[in-house]
Design a protein around this nucleic acid. Structure first.
Lengths: 241, 241
DNA sequence: GCCGGTTTGTTCTCCCGTTCACAAACTCCT
DNA sequence: AGGAGTTTGTGAACGGGAGAACAAACCGGC
């Protein structure tokens, strides 16, 4: 409607596009590391696993950073996307729940390299407060508010069992955290203005199971299941928003 | 998507609905454990964090399992959804890559209780082949094909570093695996007919960062809601226009 | 048997996202 | 300089999902 000729059209980015920007960013970072200077929308789309038209439309929401007849300057585009997402600055993050998953998250190297810094690991279990995980010592959950205030934390990660997740979320919101990444298999209820994204292993597996069952049912199709069959190299859709 | 002629009464269920069925299933399981016999669409929608109209429409794709004026029989509906998803049967699953994340996944208790059984843990690193994780001993990656054949595995989980993920996926597909859950931060290329779902921590965090940046930018707007504001469910969209 | 209250299943409309197709814009070669 | 060949950015068509609203169906009381 109104985003016709606005130069810094950073007001109207669709949610579906926002979800793909990190994918483009990763692909561009790979290209930068490989020494590539420029790339076409076709190449970048291939690396990101999307349609080139969709890629171009997504990028058009950020502005006109390409050159017709040439393509995109890889490093420049990478910077623009990173700035748009907000990962040029460092985001302090707290992780609550240092079980198996919490360990894995704390040790995940992709944090620091992608604009995030784990400033604290919290757990309600006092027996864990001796531990040092990934160079960070585990502190009592009660320290949450002090840590959030000290570091200006806006993003919290919940890696607790399901029963504790809502409590943790409430406390986080109470401390001023406004974005939560939830790994616990439960539905969180939060006030408006707080963003929650969930990562749920069981749900993903069950979605796969549904399609798998469907494949098994419609087994009338001729055998394409041979071991040596690297036929098509097309990408499989997986977006579910 | 391949429009397959429906072999039975179960027609094609929209993808968005399929993605929500596991959420309903979990909510119903909770209700069953709480001893609830029946529930209305409003109650179930609340527990699942969705709109009741959307819930009813979703369920209508499965059939008419409710009773007007009464609601749904909790246990009956739970069974029907489980059957539709395909988690009444047990799905054998292999996990490749037993690092921090692989450990967490292997120890995840939600597998067995939700229709999945980890039949093997594989890792390319020989130094890990002594380990026993979650009661399952880690075996060489080369054993993949034998294990897939023996157990009839259709679902594979990739928890390796990004550089190894495409290789692992290729081998999985070569062995006959047709559904892959990918935790590695990379885009997988697979033949048509193979489903890939990805779980990507960095992407989720970056999406949160984007919205967080937006909130910080638009700090000029007067506070519309106080801190104590128990309201919405789930993912909360922000002030678009 | 019938009436009022309740809740489901479904229809209709609107909006978002995807994809096609093409003009605009740029480079390179002659 | 000009034309041929590329590639971007975007208008427009299309399909699918979300939400409101309502008719159909069921229960209980009398």
């Amino acid at each position: 409607m109104t985003a016709r000729t606005s130069p810094e059209a950073s007001r109207d980015i669709p949610e579906a596009t926002v979800a793909r920007l990190p994918v483009y960013l990763r692909a561009l970072t790979s290209l930068v590391e490989a020494g590539t200077r420029t790339c076409s929308s076709e190449e970048l789309a291939g690396a990101a696993g999307v349609n080139s038209a969709k890629l171009r439309k997504d990028l058009s929401y950020l502005g006109s950073y390409g050159t017709r007849g040439v393509g995109y300057d890889v490093d420049y585009l990478r910077y623009q996307i990173a700035r748009e997402i907000g990962v040029e600055q460092d985001w302090p993050v707290v992780i609550v729940g240092i079980g198996n998953l919490g360990h894995a998250l704390a040790n995940f190297s992709g944090f620091r390299s992608r604009g995030f810094r784990v400033v604290a690991l919290l757990d309600a279990d006092p027996s864990r407060h001796d531990e040092v995980v990934a160079g960070i010592d585990v502190r009592p959950f009660a320290d949450l508010e002090a840590i959030v205030r000290e570091h200006g934390v806006a993003i919290g990660v919940i890696a607790t069992p399901a029963v504790a997740a809502q409590d943790v979320a409430d406390r986080m919101v109470g401390c001023g955290i406004t974005s939560i990444l939830n790994f616990a298999p439960t539905v969180l209820s939060v006030p408006t203005g707080v963003d929650v994204r969930k990562v749920d292993l069981s749900i993903e597996l069950q979605i796969l199971a549904y399609h798998e069952q469907r494949k098994a049912q419609g087994e009338a199709t001729p055998a394409t299941t041979g071991p040596g069959d690297p036929a098509h190299h097309e990408l499989v859709r997986e977006e579910t928003a």
